[in-house]
Design a protein around this nucleic acid. Structure first.
Length: 949
RNA sequence: GCCGAGGUGGUGAAAUUGGUAGACACUCGACACUUAAAAUGUCGUGAGCUCUAAUAGGCUCGUGCGGGUUCGAUUCCCGCCCUCGGCACCA
């Protein structure tokens, strides 16, 4: 049997045949067929094709082939993201030339990729390190420069001491270099930036128009990090300068008790009447010391130690623009120079970080917002049809110091757990009311008041009273002095029972945020950071905070402002193996672009790769001579190269016109083929690469160079193939799966089908590689091969098999749209099961099966197609007709009271009456009815008949 | 902490708008073929109970937990728990 499916011979023959027929060259100008651009992130040529590459390309190839069988003109290109550090590291380590290393790897990977049997159009291959490619990366950079979207400026940059290069924010993971894990340092260098922040708003707005999964959009939204607020100014007493802060909470301005500057804040060194701010303070040494210590710290150290350190600027006072009160000024490293204005107004009563800082430095905490909670869901949500009754009430938290537990009441008429609560009666102080309620509801006689908290307001539906309540709670914290307890009335006992709980138990049991808030404040962990009712806020007191924000801004003469967490994209790299930045400097040091006629601006070859901290290109004599020759004496080259993310931000444009020597891409082809219909990639690229590519596209759209302003229609993040043990593959764990091994043993087609079958491709799950699973796919293919024995010369196609063929064809189309191939493979298996259950069938039926198998197992299908006398290639065939007449009979479920009691096979258009008669004839149904007449009948034709008694 | 996705048999998973939960496979078990093994084939495989000589069959429970809506809920609503992913001193 085994020799009947010799996968190695079959694969070789198929590859030769496809090459001969030139099967996969896409004619981009074709007007007859609908274009479909299917894109996969191009790989880095590491020289080692792993199972992840297979998952990325082989499964997507299935879709490319399916689309062609549906009559689409499919562009499914491939290329290499060939600039980057590994090549250079290999150069340093093994003394090889990065270029030779890279191109040798590309050659090797082309061969490995070909073993999948992919339908790539190799003629459109793009290699990022080819001068023919990077000349256009350079050209696009010059366009961005000319339109002020590329800027040269001094910046504090993140530096990897091991790789000797600057890193983008995105390339730092937990304060460490993404590649080598080395602690990142900070340096001040003049660097090139692309002004992606100019596009922050449009990058955000564009997301609303894209049909992507929410998780992808949300990741980008979080990355862009828009926050709306205001710029407010604090005058400095006795000086002219003002401290400008950004805040999202202008409504808390009356609660500002101090102001904090980042240690790098420029104001510190600025002069006023010949004196800098630092000159005018009395504790200069302490402050200078803190600034120096901060500068030495890496970002990681700053964020790792989340303790809120800082130093007060003695002698400097800021003036709260709302209260006109003087407040102290601090420098602290929890305020970042790079966000907002580098200064914050601190409201410890209503901000987590300010609260910590204030607690640590004994600064006043001034409450200006009392929480307001409105129940909008659950049994006790405010009900529109019930009256709202306003009440002055108390809420008393009682702690038993002996057991460190809290007194709660479990209500009997409602699913509530609360603290002691009650109304404040005429002539009673709130504290008296609280004491009275404790005695009345629980019987405890001796409690000591520890603290009274600010009020909390709450709107909810009071179930036992059947009315809405707008409660204004005075909050008290008592401690139990002793266990003395008087008896509680029967009425009170009927209302609720007393339960002592730990803080943690109470937190999960309590009804409503107001009680949890009280508990949190009591334990002293959290300030209230939500919205509510304003207090201690002058004329604003009594209003709701949320709606008053803009009035506060006007009141203190500030202005609305929006901030983004997104920073400009730092693209300078002090490395060799990258695209040279096409910039030269005139004798005065001003940057100029290298004119188009000198592009590609070639990467010099006379370069010393040894890391010195200098950019390697600085060691090139040729580059310096080139600049002098072209631009004149005194002109100097730019020595940095571009971040490789620049190369990959536009490669999908080049695929359309990979060999054009005069343009980066053809406008007519871009108009026809963009945006990319479907882009498949890894979830690790959602926030960087995809965002950068969107930015590039929008910028080029604005320069009228690209016809679309969003590059990608659909975007899917594929999952990860795990080792057979379910853990992430790694050499150290020894669970790495080598695809070549499985291809040799079971054939490329078995591996392809297995990868398609392993799990849904449209979501980024983790799928463990199963050794038995691949073997099972091979068995499946063997069964298909054996089926050919059952072809009968003059057999008729059974109705059942005809329907199965049509159903499968429809299923393939449908699953393809959803990008789910696991169920497609299941459908094919069911079809094969159907074939096996059939005594004999005509060759035409088997050929239809082979056509449907072809996208998944392209080699075997081609072989079987030929053996069954198929013309040309199976891969140019159309999918079988999917719209065969539906079966006239349907199986319908019969339920009694919603429980399944049997099923019936009936004509699809059977009347309700007839269906009921048939159903009642079923013994199980008759038993379940117990002689009763159905009072209600639910009949969904073709699906369900439910008899309700 | 915040945001997002998810939780279904021993395992990967399926169920398209609320309509027979577990398709399709893997694993495991039994049997057939074989001198034997491999390969292949047949049957079984959510839990529990039950009828029967044995089959066929029947009943109850079951999609993280607790409630709700509905004739009917993996699917919708409310409240929790857990896992994974992203962000994280962003004012």
């Amino acid at each position: 049997m085994a020799e009947r499916y010799n996968h190695q011979a079959i694969e070789k023959e198929a590859h030769e045949k496809w090459a001969e027929l030139n099967l996969y060259e896409t004619n981009l100008a074709d007007e007859a067929k609908e274009p479909y651009y299917l894109l996969v992130e191009f790989p880095y040529p590491s020289g080692d094709l792993h199972i992840g590459h297979w998952y990325a390309f082989a499964v997507t190839d299935i879709y490319a082939r399916l689309l062609r069988m549906q009559g689409k003109n499919v562009l499914f290109p491939i290329g290499f993201d060939a600039f980057g550090l590994p090549a250079e590291n290999a150069a340093i380590k093994h003394g090889v030339n990065p270029k030779d290393w890279t191109y040798a790897n590309i050659e090797r990977m082309k061969g490995q990729l070909a073993s999948m049997g992919p339908s790539f159009d190799w003629n459109k291959m793009v290699v990022a390190c080819d001068p023919e490619y990077y000349q256009w990366t350079q050209w696009l950079f010059t366009k961005l420069f000319e339109h002020h979207l590329a800027e040269h400026r001094l910046a504090a940059v993140k530096w990897c001491p091991k790789d000797q290069t600057v890193l983008a924010n995105e390339q730092i993971i937990d304060g460490k270099c993404e590649r080598c894990g080395t602690e990142v340092e900070e340096k001040r260098l003049t660097q090139w930036f692309l002004k992606i922040t100019d596009y922050a708003e449009r990058l955000l707005a564009g997301l609303d128009t894209l049909p992507w999964r929410e998780e992808i959009k949300d990741a980008q939204r979080a990355w862009i990090g828009k926050s709306e607020g205001a710029h407010l100014s604090f005058a400095i007493a006795g000086r002219d300068e003002k401290i400008k802060v950004f805040t999202t909470r202008p409504d808390t301005i009356f609660g500002v008790t101090y102001v904090v500057l980042a240690p790098e804040h420029p104001l510190l060194r600025q002069g006023y009447a010949g004196q800098t701010l630092l000159d005018s303070i009395s504790n200069q040494n302490d402050v200078e010391e803190y600034i120096a210590a901060t500068a030495k710290k890496t970002e990681r150290e700053r964020s790792e130690n989340k303790e809120k350190t800082g130093v007060r600027l003695e002698g400097v006072m800021a003036i709260n623009p709302a209260t006109k009160e003087e407040v102290p000024v601090f420098i602290a490293d929890y305020v970042l120079a790079s966000y907002g204005t580098g200064a914050v107004m601190a409201v410890p009563a209503h901000d987590e970080r300010d609260f910590e800082f204030a607690t640590r430095h004994n600064l006043p905490i001034k409450t200006v917002i009392e929480p307001l909670f409105i129940k909008s869901s659950g049994d006790d949500a405010v009900r529109a049809d019930k009256p709202m009754v306003e009440r002055e009430t108390i809420s008393a938290l009682v702690r038993d110091p002996k057991t460190n537990t809290y007194l709660t009441l479990r209500w009997k008429k409602a699913a509530w757990t609360t603290f002691v609560t009650g109304g404040v009666e005429e002539g009673q102080t709130p504290e008296e009311a609280a004491r009275a309620e404790i005695l009345q509801e629980t019987g405890y006689q001796h409690v000591r008041l520890i603290r009274e908290f600010g009020m909390v307001h709450s709107k909810f539906f009071h179930i036992p009273k059947d009315q809405n309540r707008f409660g204004h709670f005075h909050n008290f914290f008592f401690e139990l002095e002793d266990d003395a307890q008087s008896s509680v009335t029967v009425e009170e006992l009927a209302k609720h029972e007393v339960v002592w709980m730990t803080a943690q138990e109470a937190r999960s049991a309590l009804t409503g945020e107001s009680f949890v808030q009280l508990l949190d404040e009591t334990i002293g962990e959290h300030p209230y950071t939500g919205s509510g009712i304003l207090v201690n806020s002058g004329e604003f007191s009594g209003r709701e905070s949320e709606v008053s924000k803009s009035d506060f801004v006007t009141f203190v003469g500030g202005e609305k402002a929006t901030n983004y967490r997104l920073r400009d994209w730092l693209v300078s790299r002090q490395r060799y193996w990258g695209c040279p930045i096409p910039i030269v400097y005139d004798p005065e040091g001003a940057p100029h672009v290298v004119p188009a006629e000198h592009l590609p601006w070639l990467l010099p070859t006379d370069v010393d790769f040894t890391p010195t901290g200098e950019a390697p290109l600085a060691s090139s004599k040729e580059l310096k001579e080139r600049v002098t020759r072209i631009f004149g004496e005194g002109w100097t080259p730019e020595y940095d190269t571009l971040d490789t993310f620049v190369d990959s931000s536009w490669y999908f444009l080049r695929y359309l016109d990979a060999k054009n020597a005069h343009k980066f891409s053809d406008p007519a082809l871009m108009k026809k083929w963009l945006p990319v219909d479907r882009y498949s990639g890894g979830s690790e690229h959602t926030t960087m690469h995809v965002l950068y590519a969107r930015f590039f596209t929008k910028a080029l759209y604005d320069l009228a160079l690209v016809p679309v302003d969003e590059p990608f229609g659909e975007r899917f993040n594929r999952g990860l193939i795990m080792g057979p043990d379910g853990a992430k593959m790694s050499k150290s764990k020894g669970n790495v799966v080598n695809p070549d091994e499985f291809v040799a043993k079971y054939g490329a087609d078995a591996v392809r089908i297995y990868l398609a079958f392993i799990g849904p491709y449209n979501e980024p799950g983790n799928y463990p590689w199963s050794l038995e699973g691949v073997a099972a796919m091979r068995k499946f293919l063997d069964r298909v091969v054996r089926l050919a024995d059952k072809i009968g010369e003059s057999s008729d196609l059974s109705e059942k098999l005809a329907q199965a063929l049509a159903r499968t064809s429809a299923k393939l189309v449908e699953d393809g749209e959803r990008f789910k191939f696991n169920t497609s493979v299941a459908a094919l298996m069911m079809l094969v099961n159907e074939f096996e259950a059939t005594e004999t069938f005509p060759q035409s039926a088997f050929r239809e099966l082979v056509i449907m198998l072809a996208p998944f197992a392209p080699h075997l299908a081609e072989h079987l197609w030929e053996r069954q006398g198929g013309e040309g290639s199976v891969h140019t065939q159309a999918l079988p007709n999917a719209s065969l007449a539906e079966s006239v009979v349907r199986e319908i479920m019969v339920q009694v009271n919603g429980k399944r009691r049997g099923s019936l096979t009936l004509a699809a258009d059977v009347s309700e009456e007839d269906a009921v008669i048939a159903a009642r004839a079923l013994p199980t149904v008759a038993t379940a009815l117990t002689g009763a007449e159905p009072t209600r009948i639910i009949y969904v034709p073709g699906k369900v008949l439910n008899l309700v008694i």
